[in-house]
């Protein structure tokens, strides 16, 4: 039985037309994802308010005595006044700055720390991997905000400390994600293919492995921004916020409201809604990104 195969399968040539690049595909999918669009709107509001705080805030956030303490919302003060007679809405608007700034810096720092650890771990492997991943296990065994509480408690209060604390709670997660995708990709078929057609390892890392690892990190970072906003406010609520008690910070503002729940319930809602909107924004965008960057998840 001597047989020869005749003809060429045209499959390869035809598949080519289907791929239009990961990012463009993802973007077009994201544009059709309604929850993600809604998330982006929330984030846009949040960021705009933070940037334009001096323009948008109707009053000086630290100027007290604008009226009676705990005055309920009125046409002059849409979110009412706090204990010292400061305009609650202006404070919430200025508070967006702190949340956004601390959130972005802490997630960026976390990404750097986690990225380095993850890249070393997944890239080098061996005992380096073992030691680093054990350290990551340890960090992850300390429940969420407790680690941040511990760090701020020891380093003392202050914005840099808060940022570092939140960064440290995120870093192990980023490290694990990056390591995981690096390990998975090292064995992935397309990497084997590009290696066998003779692409240099640096080229493989840049062209193939990084974009794939990045997608997972981008999703995690977006979701981490939501957690960061909540954690920063949580620290503020526990009295571990910015050391200057006058600073308009959402969590700290909520602490003030606990004292006057009966008299001034309006003090919960303005900062509360601000936190919820920003968290929802980042959560929805993160979920949307995950779905659009990973076509396999498409329902």
């Amino acid at each position: 039985m001597a047989t020869t195969v005749q003809g060429v399968r045209p499959g390869v040539a035809i598949e080519e037309r289907a791929s239009r690049g990961l990012w463009r595909d993802a973007l077009s999918r994201l544009r059709r994802n309604k929850p993600a669009i809604f998330g982006m709107i929330c984030i846009t509001i949040f960021v705009t308010v933070a940037i334009l705080a001096p323009v948008l805030a109707p009053y000086d956030p630290n100027k007290g005595g604008l009226g009676p303490s705990f005055a309920p919302p009125s046409s002059e003060h849409l979110a009412g006044l706090d204990k010292l007679g400061r305009d609650e809405l202006s404070r919430v608007v200025w508070g967006a700055r702190i949340s956004l700034f601390v959130g972005i810096v802490s997630v960026t720092v976390g990404l750097c720390i986690g990225g380095i650890v993850g890249a070393l771990s997944g890239g080098i492997g061996g005992w380096v991997d073992t030691v680093l991943m054990r350290a990551v296990d340890v960090m992850l065994s300390i429940p969420g905000i407790l680690l941040a509480i511990g760090i701020v408690a020891w380093l003392g209060q202050g914005l840099p400390q808060i940022m570092l604390a939140v960064a440290f709670t995120n870093a192990p997660i980023f490290a694990r994600i990056l390591r995981g995708s690096l390990l998975a990709l090292r064995e992935a078929e397309f990497v084997t293919v590009s290696r066998s057609i003779g692409s240099g390892s640096g080229r493989i890392l840049l062209r193939h492995m990084l974009p794939n690892a990045l997608t997972a990190l981008i999703v995690a970072a977006t979701l981490a921004l939501a957690t960061a906003v909540i954690d920063v406010a949580g620290l503020g609520f526990l009295g571990l916020g910015p050391p200057d008690p006058r600073t308009a910070e959402w969590g700290t503002m909520l602490t003030d409201s606990t004292e006057a729940l009966r008299r001034a319930p309006h003090l919960i809602f303005a900062p509360g809604i601000a936190i919820i909107i920003s968290a929802i924004g980042f959560n929805l965008l993160g979920d949307g990104l995950r779905e659009s960057l990973d076509p396999r998840l498409k329902r």
Binding site: M1, T3, V5, G7
Partner: peptide, 18 residues
């Protein structure tokens, strides 16, 4: 389909396309 009773040199002819 490869067959045991194929003649010597008889080619396998794939169905072209998808």
């Amino acid at each position: 389909m490869p067959r045991v009773d194929a003649h010597e040199g008889e080619p396998l002819i794939p169905i072209e396309g998808r």
